[in-house]
Design a protein around this nucleic acid. Structure first.
Length: 696
RNA sequence: GCGCCCUUAGCUCAGGGGUAGAGCGUUCGAUUCACAUUCGAAAGGCCGUAGGUUCGAGACCUACAGGGCGCACCA
């Protein structure tokens, strides 16, 4: 057979992927795939990409690692299932479509809920499908016959069932509590969706009767209902429990008139949460606009006065002097007034953390709002136990620490969002939708037919019974708490079993200078452009060879140059072998017993071990070195003036074994070469060839 | 504030007690041979700093510095 001197991925990739699809081997239930292997199963759980846009490098790495495991397991004779899908991505997707509308000069209220949701579904059709197509470009061996979306009708049933289950148990409650409110997105968001970013601002020392106290948010003064000190703080002991009359600014004087003083009464309480070392050791308590203050308020039965509304402006409780102003404006105004009245002692420069919305970067406004909450106490306990008892293993192990810490500090989960795109809260008259992670948390079993299948008693086993729980999941550290933790406790609560046995936290792909890759920062790199330039195998191999799980990966194209050269080297090792062996070579049953073949077997063993312990980079680099420097540089050179049978047998053995071992990493070039070998006796697809090492 | 990770060649990273490694890049040279996406060679490192353990430390311990991350605070 004539093959080009250089490997050209473009001639190969689409053709090969089509071949795999037609074979049916991606599905564990195809007749061919199940033949003779009813027992061994391996199921891996995908992190469904958001429908918001396109694939990024993080996806490329994560999905490649997952595909490596799946392909090895399939070759080891396991019935493998890897189910693809997409996530509706509530707030993120809604924001994207709203931005699109804004370009047309519209907002979602102009369209109304129904029309807006139509737009969302149109978006989902177009971009959801586009993403799935991109996954195929990465060569992933996903079972496309089982593709799911987090808002499929059956999935909606699962979400409803889960919500009602919690509700019936009394774990879901509606409460007026201080939550993180994003003024721009006009919705509540969870603690995890707030990013705290250090910013320079000012610390104002305000006179409160006999005290002076420090605050960064003087405007919340209008909602103060107490002062608080630490119970052990000697300086203020005599004041605890007393109500003081203090001078303040009169908020009923219209703002076109000079400020005037008035007198207000305020209680002093003692609370452990006060740090005596901060400022003057005494703080103002604004239960309506600070989460900590809200909790102090609850402990001491304090009144809560809401002075900031959902638009981020002062409401009627702030008094006519300030009503209607934005919080940033009122801050200046009130400081001005207090200064005029001599109620400000000093102002210091101060750097502190400001909460910003994870999705739009607006400043978060904590405010009291009626929201739905899920009690986390028991669920957190379950999730903790599952990891402590080893039913779920986290790799690398050091992530188990943060997992513990996070669960121990957890607050109840605010699961309602004031959005239109998402799962409606399944209680009559409720207009809100659920946090997108509430549905994501059910992914491992909702995609397999839970809860319908869990109830089905008779008949043949269905997907849920057959493939749950799964074996493996991998993700970036960024969603360990947002998602993995929530899948674990949801799985335990609804199915009695953890949804997966192993969680592997892979490296985060950064830019060359160590910055986070982000589309909005313009630092993102589109993997598809790199595939165009270097080929999928080069991308996969390059990324994998540097993904160690310990250190983040600073991405540079030099990795792909290496991958591309290596694919070509393998291609030419094959060309040499084909020419050397000729048309009439016959495959031998026995593997040759010589030094290089023994080394090859050792490499096979080590590769298997490395992949099974998630040392992907180690496996990739070892294979690279062996194929290039042992097989090509040394052994092949030595065979150039030999023509004996053992040499041929050895070449054939080395090539086939290398193809098998490299197939999980570089599926396209290996499959293409395999297809060109004329001497194989029972040729099928490399995809389902027997892995060189059976059991360790 | 508490904790975790990282610091090794120009760049990106391996190496986890016993003569400093890879890929990319650079320089020089080769080439009708499976591959110029190749081959050969070279240059390039007091392995973040300072102490300690050891016959021996890039590796183990302790501090410190710089970079990153998580949790808490963020009044």
């Amino acid at each position: 057979m004539e093959s080009p001197k250089a490997y050209n991925p473009k001639d190969v990739e689409d053709k090969i992927y089509k071949l795999w699809l037609e074979s049916g081997f991606f599905s564990p239930s195809s007749a061919k795939a199940t033949a003779g292997k009813p027992e061994k199963k391996f199921v891996t759980c995908i992190a469904p990409p958001n429908i918001t846009g396109e694939l990024h490098m993080g996806h490329a790495l994560e999905l490649t690692l997952q595909d490596i495991i799946v392909r090895m397991k399939r070759m080891q004779g396991y019935r493998t299932l890897w189910l693809p899908g997409t996530d509706h991505a509530g707030i993120a997707a809604q924001n994207v479509v709203e931005k699109q509308l804004a370009k047309e000069g519209l907002n979602r209220h102009d369209l109304g809920r129904e029309k807006f949701l139509e737009r969302m579904w149109q978006w989902k059709e177009k971009y959801g499908n586009a993403i799935l197509e991109q996954l195929k470009k990465l060569g992933l061996s996903l079972d496309w016959s089982r593709t799911k979306f987090t808002m499929d009708p059956e999935y909606q049933e699962a979400v409803k069932t889960a919500f009602l289950h919690y509700h019936k148990k009394g774990w879901i409650y509606q409460g007026e509590r201080v939550i993180n409110w994003c003024v721009r997105c006009a919705t509540a968001i969870s603690d995890l969706e707030v990013n705290y970013i250090a910013e320079k601002s000012k610390l104002y020392y305000i006179k409160y009767g006999p005290f002076t106290l420090a605050t960064t948010r003087p405007e919340t003064k209008l909602g103060d209902t107490a002062l608080a000190v630490h119970p052990e703080d000697g300086r203020y002991k005599n004041y605890i429990g007393k109500e003081l009359e203090i001078e303040s600014v009169d908020n009923l004087i219209p703002n076109d008139q000079p400020p005037q003083k008035n007198k207000i009464k305020i209680l002093v309480v003692a609370d452990e949460s006060v740090d005596p070392k901060f400022g003057t050791g005494i703080i103002k308590v604004t239960p309506a606009h600070d989460i900590t203050d809200f909790e102090i308020g609850q402990r001491h039965n304090l009144k809560s006065i809401k002075i900031i509304n959902e638009q981020g402006r002062m409401n009627e409780n702030a008094g006519i002097r300030y009503q209607g102003l934005k919080t940033s404006q009122v801050r200046e105004k009130i400081v001005e007034d207090l200064q005029a009245l001599g109620l400000i002692e000093k102002v210091e420069e101060y750097e502190h953390n400001v909460g910003r919305c994870d999705r739009c970067n607006s400043v978060i406004e904590p405010l009291p709002s009626k929201q739905w909450f899920l009690k986390m106490k028991d669920l957190a306990e379950m999730a903790l136990k599952a990891v402590r008892e080893g039913r779920v293993k986290i790799h690398p192990e050091r992530w188990a620490g943060p997992y513990e810490t996070w669960l121990k500090n957890i607050r109840d989960w605010n699961i309602s969002r004031q959005l239109w795109w998402g799962h409606k809260i399944p209680i009559d008259g409720e207009e809100d939708v659920l946090d997108t992670w509430f549905s994501s948390a059910l992914w491992p079993f909702a995609t397999l037919g839970w809860p319908a299948s869990a109830k089905a008693s008779a008949g043949k086993p269905d997907d849920f019974q057959e493939y749950y729980p799964t074996d493996f999941i991998t993700s970036d550290r960024g969603i360990l708490f947002l998602w993995q933790v929530r899948m674990i406790f949801s799985g335990l609560e609804f199915t009695g079993e953890a949804p997966f046995k192993d969680v592997y936290i892979h490296a985060t792909v950064l830019t060359k200078d160590g910055k986070r890759m982000s589309k909005s920062l313009g630092t993102g790199i589109n993997p598809l452009e790199l595939i165009e330039k270097y080929g999928t195998d080069a991308l996969r191999f390059g990324l994998t060879s540097q993904a160690t799980g310990l250190q983040d990966l600073r991405f540079g194209e030099d990795l792909l140059v290496m991958g591309k050269k290596f694919a070509n080297k393998l291609w030419n090792v094959a060309r040499y072998t084909l020419i050397k062996l000729g048309e009439n070579y016959e495959q031998q049953e026995k593997t040759p017993d010589n030094e290089i073949s023994r080394k090859m077997r050792e490499i096979a063993k080590l590769t298997t071990e490395s992949i099974e312990s998630y040392d992907f980079a180690e496996a990739a680099n070892r294979l690279y070195h062996f194929v290039w420097h042992e097989i090509a540089d040394k052994f092949i050179e030595e065979t150039k003036n030999k023509d004996d049978q053992e040499t041929k047998d050895t070449l054939a053995y080395l090539l086939l074994t290398s193809l098998k071992l490299l197939h999980p990493f570089m599926p396209f070039v290996t499959e293409e070469i395999y297809g060109q070998l004329p001497w194989l006796k029972e040729k099928q697809l490399l995809l389902v060839e027997k892995w060189p090492i059976d059991k360790l």
